[in-house]
């Protein structure tokens, strides 16, 4: 059996029956493709350092508690680090899942629903994560009871 010939996507010889959206969507897919590569390269550094500091150095996973997080977020350096990691990883992951949905969900309505759920979760997680970093309080007073730690003022 002869190998089927597959035209390159931009050749203009692709049967219109295989095209979901009429006309061009501008440069969006190219920008998304480029973004996956640029964000990926930056994420390697961000995530590997995150895993090293939290899982390998010191007491590793056994050393993580509220005080550990307070110690890190006392410094704007780690706040910005985590913020960048949050945004880049979420956008990179969301775009990756968008591509996967486009690949496997063939019905228009299924794709629309899945992407609706995806984009909603992304917005919720990115907003929540951002708020958590910037509203973090190392010495909270809950129901009138102050948190006790050596870095907090004595009540």
């Amino acid at each position: 059996m002869a190998t089927p010939t597959i035209e390159t996507p931009r050749s203009g010889r692709v049967s219109p029956g295989y095209s979901r959206t009429p006309g061009s969507r501008g440069n969006f897919e190219m920008i998304a493709w480029l973004f996956m590569r640029i964000s990926g390269a930056i994420l390697v550094v961000l995530i590997f350092v995150h895993l090293y500091v939290n899982l390998v150095a010191g007491d590793g996973i056994t050393g993580i508690d509220f005080g550990f997080v307070a110690g890190k977020w006392a410094s704007p350096f780690w706040q910005i680090w985590d913020l960048t990691m949050l945004w880049l990883a979420m956008l990179h992951g969301t775009n990756g899942i968008r591509v996967i949905i486009n690949d496997y969900a063939e019905k228009n309505s299924t794709r629309m629903w899945l992407k609706g759920v995806l984009y909603t979760s992304t917005v919720v997680i990115v907003v929540l994560g951002t708020l958590v970093i910037f509203t973090f309080d190392p010495c909270p007073v809950i129901d009138g009871v102050a948190h006790v730690a050596d870095y907090c003022p004595a009540p």
Partner: peptide
Amino acid sequence: TGVVIFFFLLVHVLDTSLVRVSPEAYDAVI
């Protein structure tokens, strides 16, 4: 692996957000 990491990250941001609930809640989950 991309899909696995994505779903982990959703849960990970949720559990980290417990630092805004109370130190005890965060420590219990961690």
